[in-house]
Simulated assay, not measured.
Amino acid sequence: MNQLEWGFYKQCPHCHHYLRLTAQQRINQVVDKNSFKQLELNMTTLNQLKVPEYDDKLAKAKDKSGLTEAMVIGTAQIKSQRVMLGVMDTNFMMGTLNTTVGEIIKQLYFEAAKHKLPVVLFIASGGARMQEGIYSLLQMNTILNAKRNFDQSKQVSINVLTDPTMGGVSASFAFEGDFVIAEKYTQIGFAGRRVIETISTEKLPIEFQDADHLKQHGLLDDVIERSEMADYIGRILKLHQEESSC
């Protein structure tokens, strides 16, 4: 990999770990050039519980990320295969799941079923958004219901877990794809290492919550390098299309 490729994939040439990507950077890396068409949704996040400073945090997140929420969806092509694509962005309040993000993901599955398209969902989240309390937690079940409805379309779904995939997101829809793969060096779990070690009083192994470790224990179908992600997903989509046409 040359210097330009290191920069494009945001990978350190020394330790080889990846920087976290914005939604747009992820889209640029994975989809065919100029094929992504964002689905514009008229959704606004509200401070329903009147949590102090939440409105300010939302405003800062919008300025930082250039997004209205932590999720972008639309149609795209990956290696010439049409898909409904969803990308979570940790630059917006750590990609946390709230009522709006939940509605966007449900819309992703609805549109995919309506147009009979496969779903590719890039997941990156610190978990449920605490400022929305029970409203955030409710999204865990309602997203799963939308996924079940999508499954009736007989289209394939590919979940790609990226760093980090934690909390209520990992405990609900993250592992509910037909294929569940992870980007290399991704941290995946529920609670963080420090919390678990404090409660259990045990020292966890260095590879704890690492994507490769989860694959070894049968929790992931595969772990993929960032530079190989588009080709890998493209092969799955092509094989699924060929299987469906038989």
Score class of each variant (00 low, 15 high):
Gly102Cys: 05
Leu237Met: 07
Lys215Arg: 10
Asn141Trp: 04
Ile199Glu: 03
Asp163Trp: 02
Met93Ala: 10
Tyr9Pro: 13
Lys10Pro: 07
Gln139Ser: 13
Glu242Arg: 07
Ile233Asp: 03
Val120Phe: 00
Val195Phe: 04
Ile199Tyr: 09
Val119Cys: 04
Leu108Ile: 08
His217Val: 11
Val120His: 02
Ser65Ala: 09
Val72Ile: 09
Gly167Asp: 02
Thr198Val: 07
Phe175Val: 11
Leu21Gly: 11
Lys79Trp: 03
Lys154Leu: 13
Asp56Val: 04
Arg235Asp: 15
Ile224Ala: 12
Ile233Arg: 06
Gly102Val: 00
Ser136Phe: 00
Arg26Phe: 08
Phe110Tyr: 14
Asp212Lys: 09
Ala59His: 09
Glu242Ile: 01
Arg129Val: 00
Asn47His: 06
Asn42His: 10
Gln131Arg: 09
Ala211His: 04
Ala113Thr: 09
Tyr135Ala: 14
Ile73Asp: 05
Phe173Trp: 04
Met88Val: 02
Ile181Val: 14
Glu53Arg: 10
Ala113Ile: 08
Gly102Thr: 00
Met84Tyr: 05
Asp89Tyr: 01
Val31Met: 02
Asn42Phe: 07
Asn98Val: 00
Leu219Thr: 06
Asp55Pro: 07
Gly86Tyr: 03
Asp89Ala: 06
Ala23Lys: 04
Lys215Asp: 10
Gln187Gly: 13
Glu103Asp: 08
Lys203Pro: 03
His115Ile: 05
Lys33His: 13
Thr44Ala: 11
Phe173Glu: 09
Thr22Glu: 10
Thr75Tyr: 01
Leu239Asn: 15
Glu111His: 10
Thr165Leu: 03
Gln29Met: 13
Cys246Arg: 13
Asp63Ile: 12
His240Tyr: 08
Leu67Ser: 12
Val31Ala: 03
Gln29Arg: 07
Leu137Trp: 04
Ser125Arg: 02
Met130Ile: 15
Val119Trp: 02
Val223Ile: 01
Gln3Val: 12
Tyr18Ala: 11
Tyr185Met: 12
Gln48Leu: 13
Lys60Glu: 15
Pro52Arg: 05
Tyr232Met: 04
Met43Leu: 15
Gly74Arg: 08
Lys238Val: 11
His240Arg: 06
Lys238Tyr: 08
Gln131Ile: 01
Phe173Val: 02
Lys154His: 13
Val223Asn: 08
Ile188Glu: 07
Leu49Val: 04
Ser125Trp: 00
Leu41Asn: 08
Ile199Leu: 10
Lys64Val: 06
Ala70Asn: 00
Met229Asp: 07
Gln48Asp: 14
His213Gln: 13
Leu49Arg: 12
Asn42Val: 07
His17Ile: 14
Ala59Ile: 09
Lys64Ser: 12
Phe36Gln: 00
Leu85Glu: 05
Gly234Ile: 07
Ala171Gln: 14
Cys15Gln: 06
Glu228Trp: 00
Gln48Val: 12
Ile104Arg: 01
Lys147Glu: 12
Met166His: 01
Asn98Asp: 10
Trp6Ile: 14
